[in-house]
Simulated assay, not measured.
Amino acid sequence: MAKLKCSDYGFECEFVSEGEIEQVIEEFGKHTEDIHGIDYSKEALMQFILRKK
């Protein structure tokens, strides 16, 4: 299980994505691009997940 929260990365946003790693990468990446205008690569999002463990 993986979990990423916008508030952990400096956004004043309550969005949370939780679940399987691939699902979290897809959801969080889409949210940050659509809502915050930041296009994180899948590799960057994987690093976010790995650093939280």
Rank of each mutant, 00 (worst) to 15 (best):
D8R: 05
Q23Y: 07
D8K: 12
E12N: 06
K3W: 06
M46L: 13
G29M: 02
E33Y: 05
E27A: 12
Q23W: 04
C6L: 13
I21F: 03
E26M: 14
M46D: 04
S41P: 06
S7D: 11
E27F: 08
E12R: 07
E12Y: 03
A2M: 07
Q47T: 14
K52M: 04
S7I: 03
D39V: 15
I25N: 01
K52Y: 02
M1Y: 06
C6E: 12
I25G: 00
K3F: 01
I21E: 08
E27T: 05
S17G: 02
R51M: 14
E43H: 04
G37I: 02
F48T: 01
E43K: 15
C13S: 00
A44H: 08
E18I: 09
L4C: 07
E43T: 13
D39I: 15
E27P: 14
L4N: 10
F15K: 00
K30A: 10
G10I: 04
D39R: 15
F11Y: 11
E12L: 05
G10D: 08
T32L: 12
G19V: 00
F48K: 00
Y40F: 15
I38Q: 15
K42P: 10
E14W: 01
T32G: 08
E22Q: 10
C13G: 06
I25A: 03
K30G: 14
E14I: 08
F28E: 05
K30C: 02
E26A: 13
D8L: 07
E12H: 07
